[in-house]
């Protein structure tokens, strides 16, 4: 279900009038919108208003997105601008809180936005890659990352798997995840993404 359609497919579908394409864009990038908003410490009502404004604007902006890979950048930038506008408006109507400089810091730090964007893309690729795995492999990986962590004995008991085979299976699952088309697409795109900056080298060394 996840990760089969690229941004290009989704933007084209949504611009054509396909609600499913739009819904998938929303599912895919709402976490990005909220991770950008989170930096501005807005109230949950304000956060919802920002989110709604971003999506309403995107509806009217779909035709203007000529390079669909620019979609997450457009979403992140619009979210930041709208959140900043609210923060600025609040600052004008309330006395300055000397302890709350986070918004000002964020204003000057556009590198932070690039990083956020890259992380969101990477995490989306990993989630999509996970969805490509077999249910059994996916289940093992999910058990390996639960918090608090489970012992291999507990994981083995849950999956009906000998404890000795968990280590080798774990390595195989991670290799599959790495080789999933979602992760591979992300890695190949990462090479010429301007925002990756210093990370470009890391990506291009992946064999």
């Amino acid at each position: 279900m996840l990760g089969t359609r690229t941004n290009t497919d989704l933007v084209e579908a949504a611009a054509r009038g396909d609600q499913d394409g739009w819904d998938e864009i929303v599912q895919r990038y709402l976490p990005l919108v909220f991770s950008v908003i989170r930096r501005y410490r807005l109230s949950s009502k304000d956060a919802e208003d920002v989110s709604q404004t971003v999506w309403l604007r995107l509806v009217e902006h779909l035709d203007a997105i000529r390079e669909p890979r620019a979609l997450p950048m457009w979403i992140a930038t619009t979210t930041r601008n709208e959140a900043l506008r609210l923060v600025t408006a609040h600052r004008r109507t309330t006395p300055v809180d000397p302890l709350n400089t986070s918004a000002l810091d964020a204003e000057v730090d556009s590198a932070a936005l690039d990083e956020e964007l890259l992380r969101a893309e990477r995490q989306q690729a990993i989630r999509d890659g996970l969805a490509e795995l077999s249910p059994r492999h996916r289940e093992l990986l999910l058990l390996l990352v639960v918090d608090p962590p489970l012992s291999y004995e507990e994981i083995g008991a849950r999956l009906g798997m000998p404890v000795g085979s968990i280590g080798p299976t774990r390595a195989r699952c991670l290799a599959r995840l790495r080789g999933s088309s979602a992760v591979q697409v992300f890695l190949s795109a990462g090479r010429d993404m301007d925002v990756t900056g210093g990370e470009r080298l890391d990506f291009s060394t992946v064999g």
Binding site: A14, G17, Q19, W22, D23, V26, L30, E48, S51, Q52, W55, L56, L58, V59, E60, L62
Partner: peptide
Amino acid sequence: AAKAAYTWRT
């Protein structure tokens, strides 16, 4: 709400 924003497409 984000999904419903799409109705403004038309």
